[in-house]
Design a protein around this nucleic acid. Structure first.
Lengths: 340, 340
DNA sequence: CTGTTAGCGCCTTCAG
DNA sequence: CTGAAGGCGCTAACAG
């Protein structure tokens, strides 16, 4: 641990004293404010550099009423949806010289309240609440003195602004891609049916099929978001409906399982059977045989936009309210279109 | 966005005025400091509650000289090793009522310097630097006025304190487990040989084999940390050395590929061939067929310990210096021992 | 028991 | 062009 550890930080008055000027002059010199003689300014700056003076952001914030600080309140860091959102937000804020307070509530409402208090006591200029599912979550309430934006999990209060991926459009996009590939006998294997994401994707899929005068082969199969289930469901499916030519999977994990079962049962992907996943989780999608076509929710983009909205709200711009469904995109790989 | 947005935060003097006491008395009443009449205290507390007063942490910090704030400087949020470490640290700090500033330098030294300055200007009480590989990284230097602890990627300066997983022990542990399972003809497939992690794990593996009077079958195979490589390498390996009875893989991704190839080539796992991975990345390890035995680096624990060390250093306790190699553990699943 | 006073480090008038 | 004074919100000594 550095030998300088514990040294008291140098203050503006240290710099002023060493430069032989008053604190006020030193302040002006360093901030380029007011009229200061060029020589004086240079001298002060040199001293500041020499002492490696760093202005105390707290003292500044106390005056300014702004801290240049934003709270990121996550419900569960573990979820893999958090990370890209967090990255996007951190990225956007970092570019604007704002720092991020990270708080993980571990999915616990009490801990969340606790963290909220802390963030407010630190006078963050704004808050982004990131949830782990797209199901609506309870609002933090309207009595908060700084702007709040909800990302991924929308707030259940329409007065709040929420950004969430458009799962209905994603479901539609998946089916439209399969149709474009000439598939017509399409089945659906998804995860936990209690998730809004599962229902929304199904809704979109059905819309797209209906638009083409088609419908799903068999009932949609729901259970859990795992490879195991993807394997089991697909085996069952191919036995019951051997004539299907495509499977729309509710997640990439399920799709990986589907690919495994298809291979076991001698069905060639994509020639004989097309498989499309959801999430575009690259570690899974790019390492399967064949590589997996998938729907990407643009989460990093979502995080960036959430940050953007918080910025605007801080600047007094009206960012509106309600749930915004952000567009998703298709990542095409070999599981739906033969390569080369 | 809440209708209260923009309202000026209520201050202690608001509370004091409304309660008909002086600011000092209000402060004492709320903090349980000094002697205050029980009735007064109750009244002040009621008013504070009513106005939903939140003390200004900045003003407090200004007096106390401590901010109750720690910086987490990551080099790359994307890496999956970051998340558990970050969680562990956030967890430990959260319990101690400390908040975390998250900064992602995106692997860029200039951005790192920039973030470091920001953290110092916010007067964080300490800093954890989290790297994405176990290769030593350049030190932030000794001129920093707060304690710094390096996690995962150790500092190249022995005067710094670094916590990193013990990859040598991990390699040894993997081999010892395979030996305990009765395997003797063991091969090694790993990732990018320029990673210290790859070399350290190999070193540990060789030590354990030597202790048993054995050696690796064939040369260790290095290329990249991917399923693709795991598949290709394993196919090659089984062709060149059909008599091997176990593969120690440098990552779970590689191990997943190994399982795939083994299945393709008709080798039964674990009866005919045992496979052990590294990282214990549960999404991969628990969804393979059979499930994957793996070495777990206890990263969340590592993050917690880093936080702990920072705490101690802040409290003036000497935490020492140098690189600490933290113990890893074995997660046994079906790829080395038949289930049931 | 309560209120007054003096700062923490910085920035912003406003005189000199 | 420079410096002295006031105050951001809060707490820690002191008086009263």
């Amino acid at each position: 641990m550095g030998e300088n550890t514990g040294t008291k930080a140098v203050t503006l008055s240290d710099v002023a004293a060493r430069a032989g000027v008053s604190i006020a002059t030193a302040s002006k010199a360093l901030n380029g404010r007011g009229d200061v003689a060029a020589t004086t300014r240079a001298r002060v700056r040199a001293v500041a550099e020499e002492l490696s003076f760093t202005p105390n952001a707290m003292a500044r914030g106390l005056l300014a009423g702004r801290t240049g600080t934003v709270g990121l309140l996550t419900s569960d860091l573990e979820g893999r949806f958090m990370l890209p959102i967090l990255m996007g937000a951190e990225d956007a804020f970092g570019a604007g010289r704002v720092n991020v307070f990270l708080c993980d509530a571990r999915g616990d409402a009490i801990r969340e309240q606790h963290h909220l208090r802390e963030l407010l006591s630190r006078r963050v200029d704004g808050i982004i609440v990131v949830g782990r599912q797209t199901d609506p979550r309870s609002s933090l309430g309207q009595g908060i003195s700084v702007p709040v934006v909800y990302a991924y999990a929308p707030s259940d209060d329409p007065r709040d602004l929420s950004l969430t991926p458009d799962n209905v459009a994603g479901g539609r996009m998946a089916i439209e891609h399969l149709l474009a590939c000439g598939r017509t006998r399409i089945a659906h294997v998804s995860g936990d049916p209690s998730y809004a994401a599962a229902q929304d994707r199904l809704t979109g899929a059905r819309q797209a099929l209906a638009d083409a005068g088609l419908q799903l082969v068999g009932d949609p199969m729901f259970a859990e978001w795992s490879e195991h289930w993807g394997r089991d469901a697909t085996a069952l499916l191919l036995q019951r409906h051997p004539d299907i030519d495509a499977i729309f999977c509710g997640s990439d994990q399920i799709a990986r399982g589907a690919l495994d079962s298809a291979r076991d049962l001698g069905r060639a992907v994509p020639d004989d059977l097309a498989v499309i996943g959801y999430d575009n989780w690259e570690v899974l999608a790019e390492n399967s045989r064949p590589e997996l076509t998938s729907i990407d929710a643009n989460l990093q983009q979502l995080g960036r936009q959430a940050a953007q909205k918080v910025f605007e709200a801080i600047d007094g711009i009206d960012v509106g309210a309600g749930v915004r469904h952000l567009p998703v995109r298709l990542a095409i790989r070999g599981s739906t279109i033969a390569r080369r």
